[in-house]
Structure formats: structure tokens, C-alpha cells
């Protein structure tokens, strides 16, 4: 079991390593303009430097800011999105009214709202978190209501014949039954809020965050820091997806055989 896990991580890391080695060779042999291409070793050094930085924010502080914003945004989006999604899933007439509006707003990229929110509530955290929340809200509300609507009618019957009231059915059957869809919505929400927070940080952050860090580095044509930021963004996302989310799925819907 453990050996298989290690094997899996290795087979994921090996091609990445290969990629970094090729990148390094190209950099060392000066095959392309190294000021623009940088080198993996240089990027690695830069990450260490940025961790130890004393005269400015460390990369850890930048990451922490982005993570905090995403967490708050995702929490708000999940709370509001799930509640509204449940309501829409249960009440057909409300759903029919709101669904076209949600369908229309859902594909609008989060970042498109940013200038509007900057005008409304100014630069910094309020705008970044609001836009992050908005972008995660739509997939969560959509998938939650979809999950509730697609519950097998018979599983509700099988509960109502045992004398369960509506409240009990909602809590013990409809909610766990729509957990696969809710999880999908949550995962989309995580991806969307993370991306949006980083994007809006480029436009509206005044103090920090990974998006702010890479966009700021651009001013000094500091490609190495940009690479460091990009790699860290992917790394953090993969880490959360493959530990926290995977673990959550393994303990619930995967264990119950509701997804393969």
C-alpha cells in the first residue's frame, strides 16, 4: 500500500525532473537568452533567498496571504453557495427563476468583476476576497442544486415509507446523496477562487500575495522570481488537491463507492 503510494509519487516526479534537467541544460549551454529563460538551479536559489528575505516580504508571507484570501473566499462561497444550491434544488419555482441568471453570470471570468469591485470598495483585501468568493460561488451553487435534483427518486421513497419526515429526508438522504456533486462544485470552486485571487492580486493587491509578487517582479524584469512564483502556485494547488481533498474524498464518497 505504502510502496504503491511512493511509486505513484515517483512516476509523477520523474518526468518533472526530466523537464527541469532539460531546462537546466538549455540554460547552462546558453542555447537561448538566459536572462529571459533563467535556470532551475537559479530559480531554486531564488526561492531560498525569498524564504530568507529580510528587507522585504518573504515568499512564505506572500503564499500565506494568497492562501488566507483563498480560504476565506472559498469558505464564504461554500456557505452561501451550498445554502442557495440546496434551496434551488428543493424549490423548483425558485430554481426556474434564478437558473437563467446563474447560467448567464457563471461563465463571466472572476477577474472581469475586479475593476467594478475596486471602484466600489477600493484596492486590497475586500476586493480580492469578494471577487474570489464570486468566482467560486457559481460552480458551487450550480453543482449543489444539480446534485439535489439528480437524487434517485426511489431512495427518497425508501426513506419516506419508513415514516421519515421531510427534514429527516433532507438531512439524512438528500444531502449525503448529493455529496458527489457538491464535492465537484467544491473542487471547481477551489480551483476558481485560487486562480481568481492570484489574478486579482495582480490588479488590486497593495501589499502582497503570490500574484502581487510575480507581477511586481515583472517591473524589474526579474524572470527568476516569476518562475519561482509560478512553480510555487502549481505546487501549492497540487499539494492541497492531492492531500486535503483526496483524503476527504477517500473518507466519504470514495469509501461509499459513489465515485470510482
Amino acid at each position: 500500500m505504502k510502496a504503491r503510494k511512493i511509486n505513484k509519487i515517483l512516476s509523477f516526479m520523474a518526468p518533472l525532473l526530466l523537464f527541469f534537467i532539460i531546462w537546466q541544460i538549455v540554460g547552462v549551454l546558453d542555447l537561448m537568452d538566459t536572462t529571459l529563460l533563467s535556470k532551475p538551479t537559479k530559480v531554486f536559489e531564488r526561492i531560498i533567498q525569498l524564504i530568507q528575505a529580510t528587507n522585504k516580504k518573504t515568499i512564505i508571507e506572500h503564499s500565506a496571504e494568497s492562501i488566507t484570501r483563498t480560504t476565506i473566499a472559498l469558505f464564504l462561497a461554500t456557505t452561501i453557495g451550498c445554502s442557495l444550491g440546496i434551496l434551488l434544488g428543493l424549490k423548483k419555482n425558485i430554481e426556474e427563476t434564478l437558473n437563467p441568471i446563474i447560467t448567464f453570470l457563471m461563465p463571466i471570468p472572476g477577474i472581469a468583476w475586479a475593476p467594478l469591485f475596486i471602484t466600489w470598495i477600493g484596492f486590497g483585501n475586500p476586493t480580492i476576497i469578494s471577487v474570489g468568493t464570486l468566482s467560486a460561488f457559481f460552480p458551487i451553487v450550480y453543482n449543489t442544486s444539480l446534485g439535489i435534483k439528480s437524487i434517485n427518486k426511489q431512495i427518497i421513497w425508501s426513506t419516506s415509507i419508513m415514516g421519515a419526515n421531510r427534514r429527516k429526508i433532507i438531512k439524512d438522504v438528500i444531502l449525503p446523496g448529493s455529496l458527489p456533486h457538491i464535492t465537484t462544485g467544491f473542487k471547481l470552486g477551489l480551483a476558481r477562487s485560487w486562480r481568481t485571487v492570484i489574478a486579482v492580486e495582480m490588479l488590486a493587491a497593495t501589499t502582497g500575495g503570490l500574484g502581487y509578487m510575480v507581477f511586481d517582479a515583472r517591473e524589474y524584469l526579474d524572470v527568476t522570481t516569476v518562475y519561482a512564483g509560478i512553480i510555487l502556485m502549481a505546487f501549492l494547488y497540487l499539494l492541497v488537491e492531492n492531500t486535503l481533498i483526496k483524503e476527504l474524498e477517500n473518507k466519504t464518497i470514495k469509501r461509499w463507492g459513489m465515485i470510482t
Binding site: S158, T252, I253, W256, G257
Partner: peptide, 13 residues
């Protein structure tokens, strides 16, 4: 009354 379905309809969770 009790009901038994063709496709079992158990609670997966």
C-alpha cells in the same frame, strides 16, 4: 409497510 426495490436502493453512505 415495507418496500423492497428491484435495484436495491440502499444508502451508499
Amino acid at each position: 409497510r415495507g418496500f423492497v426495490f428491484q435495484d436495491f436502493v440502499l444508502y451508499p453512505w
